[in-house]
Design a protein around this nucleic acid. Structure first.
Ligand code: SF4
Ligand code: SF4
Lengths: 137, 137
DNA sequence: GTTAAACAGGACTATTTTAACCCTATTATC
DNA sequence: GATAATAGGGTTAAAATAGTCCTGTTTAAC
């Protein structure tokens, strides 16, 4: 269906939320989940992925939470997608060749791969900084 | 995971197969399934979708089968995707607003929709005619 | 006109992926 | 030491995808 996952959308919302709060402010998952209206546990997983990718930074313990790990013009939508969904694979064979039973006789793999690359370029073209301007404007 | 469905790939292969056989030649689902190595029943569903969209034309009865319904430069990859997967919805709310619990407070919907449009433009930029040239070249 | 080979399509089942939840650490403030 | 937070493994639930089955309908060939 070529649809982004909920986890990705949660992550994207979280990043823009953190961005509007500024780099200094430490925000808890609870606050974000309450504010934006989705599951705390699930958002928590998304934040952990973002943290591992360096997009978010975490502070543990009481008074802990998350902040952005980079400046907003240094995070692209592609980065967020990569952090949360892992390497993109528009076609099954990208995960592993034997995921497709007709791998050896397939002629349109090259096209699909360039298509995937073009989609990646689209995602990489939007930084969180530019996204925020779109949102406000 | 932003991955195309198997049904779409089956359909795309079928269309290029029909295209190489020329508009005159009527090809059965059995032949295509055997030739390309996938489930006859499942490919049959894809062909039915392609037929309903006018991309393929069918001949019923003994000696029946499928041919292309249009010229190869009149079919784009986007057309095939539309025929097989229906209207694309990069985000849940595209299907129906109430599919997303935070619809009313969502700020990045506009961006996601333009993103989807750009992906559609990518798909629409490739005709079966140009795809065949890529494959051969 | 009977048979057989093909498309048409509804309904069902199985598999896989995604989403959500639970529970136990660990960390650090108070 | 109590508490409020992140970290993360493991399990379950729900949804989407893939695949099958079965019953019609059409039509060429005999
Ligand atoms: S059909 Fe081709 S492009 Fe698609 S998964 Fe198989 S090998 Fe890859
Ligand atoms: S988060 Fe926004 S864009 Fe995504 S489904 Fe919900 S309303 Fe649509």
């Amino acid at each position: 269906m070529l649809q982004v996952s909920r986890k990705f959308e949660y992550g994207l919302h979280a990043v823009t939320y953190l961005a509007t709060k500024g780099l200094g402010r430490v925000v808890t998952v609870k606050e974000m989940a309450d504010e934006m209206g989705f599951s705390q546990e699930f958002l928590s997983k998304a934040m952990q992925s973002l943290k591992r990718a360096g997009i978010a930074a975490s502070v543990q313990g009481v008074k802990g939470g998350y902040t952005l790990g980079k400046s907003t013009d240094n995070i692209t939508v592609a980065d967020i997608a990569l952090a949360i969904e892992g390497k993109p694979h528009l076609v099954r064979c990208g995960v592993k060749a034997d995921r497709c039973e007709i791998f050896s006789s397939c002629h349109h793999r090259g096209y699909m791969n360039t298509l995937q690359h073009k989609i990646q370029v689209l995602l990489a073209a939007t930084t969180v900084h530019s996204l925020l301007k779109e949102i406000v404007g």
